[in-house]
Every structure is written in C-alpha cells, then in structure tokens.
Write a protein that binds this DNA or RNA. Sequence first.
DNA 1: ATAATCACCTGCTCGC
DNA 2: TGCGAGCAGGTGATTA
Length: 271
Amino acid sequence: MPELPEVETTRRGIAPHIQGKRIRDIVVRNSSLRWPVPVAELQSLQRCQITSVERRGKYLLLSTSKGTVIIHLGMSGSLRIAKADEPPMAHDHVDLTLSDGAMLRYTDPRRFGCWLFTSEDPYDHELLNELGPEPLNDEFDLEYLYQASRGRKVAVKQFIMNSHVVVGVGNIYANEALFLAGIHPKRAAGKISRQRYERLVPAIKEVLGQAIEQGGTTLKDFVGGDGKPGYFKQSLNVYGRGGEPCVTCDRPLKEIRMGQRTTVFCKFCQT
DNA sequence: ATAATCACCTGCTCGC
DNA sequence: TGCGAGCAGGTGATTA
C-alpha cells in the first residue's frame, strides 16, 4: 500500500491520538512479520509516554523515554485508531492500547511490514542509518541527485527507487515523476544530463508533495490514520493506465516490467 | 561497489 | 464453480 505520502498521511492521522499519551499495553497476535516482533521489549514500554511520532522515509518512529518503536507498513500494512474494545479481524497483528481507551491497530495481510524496538537513537539503527535524503527536504536538490547518478548504469527508474539514493519514491510515484520530467524510465541514470535532472528533482518533489496534500493514493483500501481514503488516484497520469491515452499526446501508454515492477510511460513524451 | 534476482506472504483477478 | 498463473503500494538478502 504505502509510499512516502501514504506513510506521512498515516503519521498525521495517528499522531494527534497517541502523542503525549501513555501506553497501556502492546498486544501482539502474530509476531511473524518481516522480522520477529520483539514482544517482550515492546511490552516493557507499558506506562511510558509517547513523546514523538516521526517519519523517516517510509518508517514511522514512536518514541518514549525508554526507546523507540520502529514501524514499517511493507506492501499491505496500515495503522488506524480504534476503540480498545473493537474485536480484531484476521490480519490485525498488533494493538498498542493507550491509557485513555484509544488504540493504535496494525493490520497487514502480507506481513511484509515490521515492528521493531531500539533503545538507541533510532537514526543510528541499521535500517535507517544509510538512508538517502528526504525528497521534500532542501538537501535533496539538483546537485545532490546529479552527482549521485554519475557512473551509475542502473536504469533511472530503479535509481530513484533506491532508498540509499533518496527515500520514499516507490513504484507509483517513480512512474509519475518520470512522466512529469519527460524521461524514459530505462535510461541509464549516469547518462542523463544535468538539464534533465533539473526537471526530475522538482517532478519528484511535486508528485510527492501533491500526494501528501491529497491524503495519499488509495488503490485498494488504503485509509489514513483517520480512516479517510486518499484522493491522489485521480491525479495519476500513467500508473495503472497502460494502453490508455497519454494525457499529453493522446497516444497509448506503454506498459513493461522493470525489475519485477510494472512500469508505465509514454514512449513519445518520455525520451 | 554495483546490478540483477530472489524471497517473504496473502488476496484478488484473469483465463481456461 | 473451480483451479492455477500472475500480479499487487517494499526492501533486505543473496548471487554474480
């Protein structure tokens, strides 16, 4: 489900309901996520106050004085606020209940996501410490991306989807950003000119920023922490539109596979 | 170091 | 209606 805009939408949806509140309990019904869920460590957070709800890339960080819970939604995960007495459904793997009777519930049918714990600085955690810049921050700029691309033979689409290069650009928004920038997804990253990166960097910022403003993209059943769907789907130019007319030139969009991911582009507008 | 492929898992759609 | 194939928003691990 989630790329950066969906994770940010989730963060904004849940933060007002959990930040500053005290953890009552953490109930793990299925600890078999991407990595085993450290149940005992998480439960040691009972009675701790949640001091901050941050996002780094597609990771969510719930911090307390004793340590930080690191959550990733994988492909099919979601978090939402519910009443603590709501009966769990089949894929509701983790509940974090709060002292005021609210509950943060984690649902993930495919179980590609994770719930981890660290007592150290979470930004030093091995999953986070080598991540590239946040795409919406100023440090993600033309100079950075252009220099990072030099000598790279990988296709530009896979290059911008690499979290060590820049975080948060998943399959949907990679397709969309390359369309906006007029760049063919299979071009080698290292052979694209500075002038073209000058279009790509703002395209990435634009597509992610717009998606956040519209509450993310709801493809199947994504809902933010407040239970509302995202409205970005109506803004997609290429993703999910293979064979349909290009919004610019009206000719049919091409759909191919790149690294087991569906790739959609206009072979006339993207060169 | 970089690039390509595999693996993890459930659910849904499609074609026969 | 049933069944296998293929696909789905991610990304670390493994292999060249």
